[in-house]
Design a binder for these strands. Sequence first.
DNA 1: GGTCGATATTTTAAGCTTAAAATATCTCAT
DNA 2: ATGAGATATTTTAAGCTTAAAATATCGACC
Lengths: 169, 169
Amino acid sequence: MDDAPALPLDAETMAHEAENGHKAELRLWLRLLTLSNLIEAEIRRRLRERFDVTLPRFDLMAQLERAEEGMTLSEVSRRMMVSNGNVTGLVETLVASGHLERHQSPKDRRSQVIRLTALGRRDFARMAAEHQEWIASFFADLDEGEIERLMTLLGRAKASVRRAKGDTV
Amino acid sequence: MDDAPALPLDAETMAHEAENGHKAELRLWLRLLTLSNLIEAEIRRRLRERFDVTLPRFDLMAQLERAEEGMTLSEVSRRMMVSNGNVTGLVETLVASGHLERHQSPKDRRSQVIRLTALGRRDFARMAAEHQEWIASFFADLDEGEIERLMTLLGRAKASVRRAKGDTV
DNA sequence: GGTCGATATTTTAAGCTTAAAATATCTCAT
DNA sequence: ATGAGATATTTTAAGCTTAAAATATCGACC
């Protein structure tokens, strides 16, 4: 903690910094974030415009799509990586709009199982089809090899982040 | 709209889909989003824990760091890519905490110029130093070449998305 | 000089998100 | 059986975010 935290940087180190003086890793993070936000904002805009639905609601329905027997709120919350309370509110809305149904779990009286209704499945299918086309068009200028390399590198980055997060623990 | 929207997929197409039946582009988007969210959540957590500050406030201060003469709210709003009303609220908070000062613009009575105070510069410098170390550690398992390739591919992806967004207009 | 469209900012309403606290129920070791 | 700790859910308070409407001012054109 005490060793030279603010030493002037040598020439080689400087050469690795960008025009804005940021380290390569920081520039990478900013580019990643910008791209992610750019895509997400456009998806939100289109979901709203085309289907009058929010992204969180779409994501929740996506989690339930393949769960024929439904899922508990906790399971949805874990998969979406959001808080329990968050899911409570989203489910409330989607039950009210007729897209979801909830039942007490027969095995655990603490739990509720939620499931897409017929309306929910129908509406989600429509939205998912367009959504997939949007995404494909976003990356249309990348060839197969580039997509493959991006997948690999992002996978390695994800592993690195998980390792780094845990290091502190 | 009428031409065969749901034709069964041929073998070659199927081969390009993943275990979960998603197209490569969709899997790429999900991986990108997951990584971005993973990093962002950890940064939010650490900023809160270490400095009791939120990410949007940190981002706003970051925008002002190099603007010796300050910036207008609109300029900040454009650079942060968030709404004007959003900036209004963040500035309110940071002025109250003594990190920002605001002045009427001498040239335009509609505009206000905001600038970091001495406290703001000092606190931001402390936070930015740690923040940069966090990011570096997150990507520590990637070598220089991998970071370089990721930067390039993300840059190409960004260009593709911008092109695709505009296509509809 | 007056008017009109553009720009800067604020306000408002709606919705998302979280952490933390409160309830209810479950599980399991004794 | 029972009591403790774990788990499922909801509630609450605080904060972020946006779109849209409302104000105020600017700039340019007639």
